[in-house]
């Protein structure tokens, strides 16, 4: 049902709002995202600074940082994820109830960051869990984190309850719990979750013939 924009704004001035159920649902969810208190390393201090008095994060709906994953709907992975910590991160993500989101804050959480050459560093948390927003920076400024929350809010506003791009929660076939890796001899087993992460393709790899065929 499409309502004319002019009519909508006229009605709004009178105090009558015309929305779809989806818009109302998404507005409620995006305006009160409660993050999980999960700082791993240096980015955690910038996360606390963005929740502190100067860059107040509470005005964007992230009112309280919950201590338990059962009550949170956003996990901000702030800091380097090591191979020793990775199974616990995945376990915590599994414990969060749907609909849940994940922000990878800082270069270390995106791809291993400056510590990429490490024997104990996991090269990005998106090897095991799906990440919604990546924030580059080392550490990203508190304003960058606020921008990421706003980006996430826009993403939530565009999510549908049915058809494609629907919420994972409503999709009967989607996975909500991800397998937890185990500690191996020198590395985690498995080194990455193939359903969640594929190594990026290099566009220089593709020749013109292949493009023509596709």
């Amino acid at each position: 049902m499409a309502v004319d924009e002019g009519l909508k704004s006229e009605l709004q001035k009178q105090g009558i709002f015309v929305l779809t159920f989806e818009q109302l649902y998404n507005w409620g969810r995006k305006s009160s995202i409660w993050p999980l208190q999960f700082g791993l390393a240096c980015c955690a201090i910038e996360m606390i600074a963005s929740a502190a008095a100067r860059y107040d994060l509470a005005r964007f709906g992230a009112e309280v940082f919950r201590a338990t994953p059962r009550q949170a709907d956003l996990m901000i992975v702030a800091g380097t994820v090591t191979k020793k910590m990775a199974p616990l991160v995945v376990c915590l993500y599994n414990q969060m109830p749907e609909p849940k989101y994940c922000i990878a804050m800082g270069a270390c959480a995106i791809s291993g960051g400056p510590f990429k050459d490490g024997y104990n560093v996991l090269k990005g948390i998106d090897r095991y869990i799906p990440v919604d927003v990546h924030i580059p920076g080392c550490p990203p400024r508190p304003e960058a984190l606020i921008h990421a929350i706003m980006t996430l809010q826009r993403k939530i506003a565009n999510q549908h309850l049915e058809k494609e791009n629907r919420l994972r929660w409503y999709d009967k076939n989607a996975e909500t719990e991800f397998p937890i890796p185990s500690y191996g001899d020198h590395d985690l087993q498995p080194p990455a979750n193939r359903e969640v992460w594929q190594p990026p393709r290099d566009y220089r790899d593709v020749t013109l013939d292949e493009v023509k065929k596709a």
Partner: peptide, 22 residues
């Protein structure tokens, strides 16, 4: 390191596992 880890990583002849797919 975690308890199931074998080998001693800081030795000069330790070769870390290759998870350099990209």
């Amino acid at each position: 390191m975690w308890d199931e880890f074998t080998d001693h990583p800081m030795r000069k002849d330790y070769v870390p596992p290759s998870d350099y797919e990209w």
